Simulated scan of single mutants.
Amino acid sequence: MASTTTPQTGLVALIFCKTALQIQNDDPLQSITSNLTTALQPLFPTLTPTTATTTRYLDASATTARVLELTLPTTGPSPSLPECTAATHSPALAALQAQNSWNLVLQPLELYRSHSQPGLAVFDMDSTLIQQEVIDELARAVGCYDQVAAITEAAMRGEAPYADFEASLRARVGLLRGVPVGVWEDLKKGVISFTPGAAELVKVLRGLGWKTAVLSGGFTPLAVWVKETLGLDYAFANHLVADEGRGVLTGELVEGMPIIHAEKKRELLLRLAGENGIPAERCVAVGDGSNDLLMMGAAGLGVAFNAKPKVQLAAPARLNGESLLDVVHVLGYERGEVEKFL
């Protein structure tokens, strides 16, 4: 279904299929487009899908594809991002996603097109760029994993009394008194694993001219290592006090150093954008926890990656899958554009 003119306003729907589709003769394309358009029309009455709808696969091989882009023009202004977010959680679209094992991301057309220009991409670290929650791994070293993990989970879900990130951080750090300072090297060598697609995503974004940063509620020794290993431009995290004489952590945070909580992440995103001359609408923030929501809201697009349920409901966009590399498709880049940087 091709358009003879380029729409100026509209809605872009990205469909991430759990299982790759066989695409000979474009058989699934027509069915998917029809079903989704039917579900979208009542939610966005100004859509004009019969006149100028365009479709393309973003990751197609010769015979299969998993990510479909559907662009539908509107007769008036494009839907807002909050309207797009709310629609993905509507009963009709929630049912369609569940029935077909889809993950649906909706964006205003103008925002989607803006991703073609290099911007700033910021990432949470724990359970986003890496697969672990670092403070939990530190806790294993002193046998208090269960206590720390319980606080971590409650904090990530935004539950009282640990909805305040700084309070939960200090409570957990206090349990780490006596952890050997050599634990960082142990974690790097045998515990920490990068999320599939993380290295490739950063490589592609950097190749496309994007600035990249990790903004972590974790700790500086690992955040700096993640930055250097992946080739990120910036790293910000919390600072732990170490008793160098005894070679252990004291269970305290360095006084005078900023706590990287939700508001600080938002502040850092806006600061880095300003320093690099990048407008906020060309910023993308990716995370999984409630302390990532403010930076997601400040960015042009926030993406919850395999996030906690509360975060999935609140985040501007959600992406549930095996590879962080799928973020490039959320930004509208095709497989061919991606592969030349890998």
Rank of each mutant, 00 (worst) to 15 (best):
V327R: 02
T229L: 05
G197P: 13
G218I: 10
V204W: 11
G251N: 06
T229G: 00
T212Y: 04
G231R: 10
V214W: 13
G302C: 12
E244M: 08
R271W: 06
L222S: 05
L205C: 09
L325N: 02
R271V: 00
D243R: 12
R206V: 11
I278P: 05
G302Q: 14
K227V: 05
A280P: 04
T250G: 08
A199D: 02
I192D: 09
R271I: 00
E322H: 06
L313A: 13
V226R: 07
E263V: 08
K264A: 11
R318H: 09
K265C: 03
A280Q: 09
A235N: 06
G300A: 05
V327G: 01
N291R: 03
E200K: 09
F305H: 05
V284R: 01
F236H: 08
L268Y: 02
A262L: 11
L331D: 15
L240V: 02
L201I: 13
L249P: 02
W225D: 01
S323C: 07
I260F: 07
L201G: 08
F219A: 03
E322V: 06
A299D: 12
I278N: 03
A307L: 14
K308H: 12
E267K: 09
G300V: 13
H329G: 01
L324A: 01
G251I: 07
A213H: 12
V286P: 05
L215E: 12
R271K: 15
K308D: 12
M295N: 01
S323N: 11
L270H: 05
K264D: 01
M295W: 03
L222C: 08
G207E: 15
A307C: 14
E252Q: 03
A307Q: 15
V214N: 13
L293S: 00
G289P: 07
N238Y: 10
G300H: 14
E281N: 05
P258A: 02
L222R: 06
P279R: 06
L313S: 07
M296G: 00
L215S: 11
E267R: 09
G302F: 14
L253Q: 03
P258M: 04
E281Q: 09
E263C: 01
G217V: 08
A307P: 15
G256N: 14
V214P: 14
L215V: 12
G247I: 01
E322C: 00
R282D: 00
A317T: 13
R266Q: 13
F219L: 04
E322K: 10
V191F: 03
K265Y: 07
G274Y: 00
P279M: 05
F219K: 08
L294M: 01
S216A: 11
Q312S: 04
V330D: 01
S290Y: 03
F194G: 04
R318N: 04
S290Q: 10
